[in-house]
Simulated scan of single mutants.
Amino acid sequence: MFGDIMGMMGKLKDTQEKIKATKERLNTVLIDEQSSDSKLKVTLTANRVIKEITIDESLLQDKEQLEDYLILVLNKAIERATNVNEVELAAVAKEGMPNIPGMDTLFK
Rank of each mutant, 00 (worst) to 15 (best):
V92Q: 01
V92W: 04
L74C: 15
V92N: 00
A93N: 01
S58E: 12
T82A: 15
T82C: 10
I53R: 02
L66Q: 03
K76P: 01
E57A: 13
L44D: 01
L40I: 07
L72A: 13
V42N: 00
D56E: 07
I78W: 07
E86H: 09
E52M: 13
Q34E: 12
A90P: 01
N85K: 06
V42K: 02
D62V: 12
E79W: 07
K39G: 05
T45H: 01
L59R: 05
V49A: 05
L44P: 05
V87F: 08
K41Y: 07
L66C: 05
I53S: 02
E86N: 08
L66G: 04
A90C: 09
L59N: 06
V87A: 11
V87K: 08
A93Y: 06
I78K: 03
Q61F: 14
N47F: 01
L72S: 15
S35V: 11
L60F: 15
L40N: 04
S38W: 02
R48F: 08
L74H: 09
I71P: 01
T54L: 09
L60C: 08
A93T: 07
D68T: 15
V87I: 14
A93R: 04
R80W: 06
E64F: 15
A81C: 04
T43C: 08
E79Y: 15
S36Y: 12
S38I: 11
K39L: 09
L72M: 14
D37H: 07
A90Q: 12
V84C: 10
S58K: 12
D37R: 10
E79R: 11
V73R: 01
I50W: 11
K63H: 13
K41G: 01
E79I: 13
R80V: 13
E67W: 12
L59E: 09
V42S: 04
N83C: 07
K41F: 03
I71E: 13
I55E: 01
V73A: 02
N47A: 04
Q61I: 15
L89H: 03
T54Y: 03
S36T: 13
L70R: 10
R48A: 09
A90M: 10
A90S: 13
I55K: 02
I53T: 08
L89S: 04
I78V: 15
I55Q: 00
E33Q: 12
E57K: 12
D56R: 00
E67R: 11
E64Q: 12
T45W: 03
A77N: 04
L60N: 12
Y69R: 05
L66Y: 11
Q61L: 14
L89N: 00
E88Y: 03
A91K: 11
S58F: 04
D68G: 00
K41A: 06
R80G: 07
L59D: 04
I78C: 10
E64L: 14
R48Y: 03
N83S: 14
L66F: 09
L40G: 05
L66S: 05
V87Y: 04
V84I: 15
D37Y: 06
N85F: 12
A81K: 02
E33D: 13
A46D: 03
E88P: 01
V87D: 13
L40V: 08
